[in-house]
Structure formats: structure tokens, C-alpha cells
Design a protein around this nucleic acid. Structure first.
Length: 413
RNA sequence: GGGCGUGUCGUAUAGCGGCAAUUACACCGCGCUGUAAACGCGGCGUCCUCACGGACUACGCAGGUUCGAGUCCUGCCGCGCCCA
């Protein structure tokens, strides 16, 4: 008896997009769906009713962050993540696997998961390696572009140093599952090793093997039956590694799949790499693209058969003053909005656009008023959720490919 | 009237004789992809379409010393404090 139930409602004929309902113990999610990121059991600046009003259906918190200072034990006592944060809906938790990258290799080199360049120079245009051949990024990496220095990765697990307290924090498949069971989200992820976009083919191959062995240990460690677990696929931008990892993870009894690690920069590359994975996964289980979901690639990714995706960018950009509109991104802090008394986007039904002007939001950002960040976050989440809803409708109406073409036609994203 | 001190980029500041000249704020832009992120980066005298290149103009004003002055000297002007 599974914790979740995934039932497909409609499939697109021209792409791999599908529309489905994912039932969880805390309610159903209409997919495709954008998962709001609430790392520390909070979608920054928003209260639960605002998250709901922005159209979000599900919230994702993070094991690593909640593990610090023993917060997971408090949350268990509180009755689980959803109850703790008073979110009346489905929740997910990430395994801490991303921190293997961000606190390790990412911190070593000051990079994010998507880098269009190598420290030593630009990546050759259009190069997307299909195997560990001569054109792979491995040729451009140096010896230090291998295993991270700031954290310790072994077969057993990973040791992090908390950037706040400086204390050593250990995470392994068993520890991650244990914490995530205490957090009690409806869906959680297997502990994986998220590789860097700078990792060589050889290193990425090792990480794929380790991720599979860790995935098995996660399944063995799991004891709660009211939670679902998603296995995570790695493999960087190499087709053979992605295929191998997909095959490995799909062979295990997971409730769904996480598509992790770097997947390329350009729209074409992203589509290609995602496609390698979704084409090797069973149709009847949900796929979650981890950490990708800005307007730029969102519609493309749905076309490749992705059902769920989370991304910090819409909320982070909102806090930093970048707002989404149909015409493209708006930097609300720019001087041109100082005396613009029109709404950010006419016709938008969000709380920001129906009540305030660009001028006022500009003012709030310039003066550092917290309300600005909150209104901006509501808007960007609303924009993304609305876009995804339109995708669902388009799939149901058999018009998804037209919608996709139209969305990208004006070049706004 | 006498003594001491002070005058630098919008504001506030740094500046042992060799800097178009520090820092902060402000201002003008940009970036952010499983959140070390209410954060980070760049620009900010003028001009040469850009410039790691070049030219010019700059540290109250006017002279002076010096190869070279925001930095030293003299005078003036403005401001501040103290004594009469």
C-alpha cells in the first residue's frame, strides 16, 4: 500500500508532457506542478495562506538545514513538517544531497549548479559530450576539479562543516532517511551525490555508482509506510552516465524519481539531458526535476515529461527585485519605475498586481521595506504557478505544443 | 583683537611628496536554478563609439618650493573651538 497515488489524466501527443493527479496523505497535487521551496520550513517572507493564495500546492524543505541544531527532533515532536509550519497541504523534503555539491565543490569554486564556463576558460560553444570522449569537459578540467576539498565524501557518507557554527555534521543514506522520517513529509528523496558541472567524466561516473549504492541503502533504511521515497538520478551531461544512472535507479522500488545534478545550460541541452532520463523511466510514476524551474526552461521541461520541479530562483529573484511578467523580467529597483503608477502586469490577478503600482513596489525596494519582498514573492510564485496551470490546461486540451511555441515565441524567456 | 584647528568625487570619510585619489552611503546597471543568498557583482570627473589604451580637467582660491604637490611654505577666503 503506497503512500502516494499517481494517476495520469491526459497525455500530449506531440511531446512527452502529461497531466496527472498525485495523491498524498496531505492532499492531492495537480501535475505538472511547481514545488515552492521552503528550505527551513518556511517559504521566505510568506505565511501559509499567502503560499496558498499564490497558487502553490506543495512545499519542499531541506534535511540538511533542519538537521542543524537538532531542529528535526522539534519538528517530530510538533507532529511533522506540515503541522509544524501550519501548511495545510502536501510537503516534501530534500535529502541533503544537494549540499554535497553546494557546500563542497560549489563552495570550493564559488559556483552554482549551472555554470556556463570553466574556471580556466569558456566551455566550447555547443559542446555537449555524449560519452567520456575527447570533447568532454574532463579535457578542460584540472586535477583540482575533482573531489571537493571543503567536505569529505566516503562510501559511507559525507561530513560537512556547518558554515554557521563550524561544527562537523555527518550525513549518510541512513542518517538522511532517519531525519526525513522524523520530518515526516509526504514525499522525501534518497540521499545522493549531486556532482558539479565542473566534475570530470571519471569523477561523475564514480558518483553515479555511489548514488546507486546509497539509493539501495535508503530503501533498506526506510521504515515508514505513510511516506513516499523518490530515488535520484545523476550522471552530469554525459548520455551514457545518465542512461546508466536511470537504469540503476529505475530498477529499485522507488515511488517516483528525482532528476538531479547538472543538466546543461542552453534550452536545447537541458531538454536533451532531461529526455535521456525521462525516456528510461516508467510512465506510471512521477518525475521530479530537482532545482530547475525558472520560466526560461519550465515549459520545455514539462514537454520532456517532468511532473514536478522545485526551484529557488522565483522566490530568490523576487526578494532581490527581479519580477516576472509575460513580457520578460522586470528589475523593479530600476529608476524607470520610480513614477510608473501602473500595475506590474495588467491583468495579473495576484495580490501585488491587483492592489499596488510599480512605483510603490519600487519605493518599497529602494527603502528596504520588507513588504516589497513579500509582495514580489507572492507575484513570482503566482506567475510560475499560473504558467504551470496553463500547461496543465493545454495538455488536457491537446494544445500543449502550440502553447509551448507561443510561450517562447516573443523571446521574453 | 589673539591663539589653535579645518576646507578632498552628491553626502560622510582615507590619504609617510610620485594616484583620477581610500572607504561607506547614495546613485546607475547586472546576476541569481534541489537557498551558506532580504544576497552578490560591476560602474560612478570629462572626452576619445568600448577599453586592461589614450587625452584633458581635478583635492577652497592665488602664488611659491620641488624632477614631481591633495600632501611642504606664504597670503587670501570660508567654517569651527578656545582666550580676551
Amino acid at each position: 500500500m503506497a503512500a502516494i497515488k499517481f494517476s495520469t489524466q491526459a497525455k500530449d501527443t506531440k511531446t512527452h508532457a502529461r497531466m496527472a493527479t498525485l495523491k498524498t496523505p496531505h492532499g492531492a497535487i495537480e501535475t505538472p506542478a511547481f514545488v515552492a521551496v521552503g528550505t527551513l520550513a518556511s517559504v521566505r517572507t510568506l505565511a501559509p495562506d499567502e503560499i496558498r493564495q499564490a497558487g502553490s500546492q506543495v512545499v519542499l524543505a531541506n534535511t540538511y538545514h533542519l538537521y542543524l541544531e537538532g531542529r528535526h527532533e522539534v519538528i517530530q515532536k510538533a507532529g511533522g513538517l506540515a503541522k509544524f509550519m501550519n501548511w495545510d497541504g502536501p510537503t516534501m523534503t530534500d535529502s541533503g544531497g544537494f549540499q554535497v555539491f553546494s557546500m563542497g565543490f560549489g563552495a570550493d569554486h564559488g559556483i552554482g549548479k549551472n555554470v556556463p564556463f570553466f574556471p580556466g576558460g569558456d566551455l566550447p560553444a555547443g559542446s555537449l559530450p555524449t560519452a567520456g570522449g575527447a570533447e568532454s569537459p574532463a579535457d578542460l578540467t584540472r586535477s583540482e576539479l575533482e573531489a571537493p576539498r571543503k567536505i569529505k565524501i566516503t562510501e559511507d557518507g559525507v561530513e560537512f562543516q556547518s558554515p554557521r557554527e563550524g561544527n562537523i555534521l555527518e550525513l549518510s543514506p541512513e542518517i538522511s532517511v532517519k531525519i526525513q522520517q522524523r520530518l515526516g513529509a509526504d514525499i522525501f528523496f534518497a540521499f545522493d551525490e549531486c556532482t558539479s558541472p565542473l566534475s570530470s567524466y571519471e569523477y561523475t561516473k564514480q558518483a553515479v555508482g555511489r548514488t546507486t549504492r546509497w539509493a539501495k541503502r535508503c530503501i533498506e533504511a526506510k521504515t515508514r509506510s505513510d511516506q513516499a521515497i523518490f530515488g535520484v538520478i545523476q550522471g552530469g551531461v554525459w548520455q551514457d552516465l545518465r542512461n546508466q544512472s536511470t537504469k540503476d535507479i529505475a530498477s529499485l522500488p522507488f515511488d517516483g524519481y528525482g532528476l538531479g545534478g547538472p543538466v546543461g545550460i542552453s534550452r536545447d541541452d537541458i531538454k536533451k539531458v532531461i529526455g535521456w532520463m525521462t525516456s528510461g523511466l516508467p510512465e506510471e510514476k512521477p518525475r521530479h526535476l530537482l532545482g530547475m524551474g525558472s520560466p526560461k526552461e519550465l515549459v520545455d521541461v514539462i514537454a520532456e515529461g517532468v511532473d514536478l520541479f522545485d526551484c529557488v530562483v522565483p522566490t530568490r529573484e523576487a526578494r532581490n527585485g527581479t519580477l516576472y511578467t509575460k513580457a520578460g523580467k522586470v528589475h523593479i529597483k530600476n529608476a524607470c519605475h520610480r513614477e510608473d503608477f501602473s500595475p506590474l502586469e495588467g491583468g495579473c490577478r495576484c495580490h501585488l498586481c491587483t492592489n499596488f503600482t510599480r512605483s510603490y513596489l519600487h519605493h518599497l525596494f529602494r527603502t528596504g521595506e520588507l513588504l516589497g519582498k513579500r509582495l514580489a514573492t507572492i507575484h513570482n510564485l503566482f506567475f510560475i504557478n499560473e504558467l504551470v496551470r496553463q500547461c496543465r490546461d493545454a495538455v488536457a486540451a491537446g494544445a500543449f505544443e502550440d502553447f509551448r511555441q507561443e510561450f517562447y515565441a516573443n523571446g521574453a524567456y
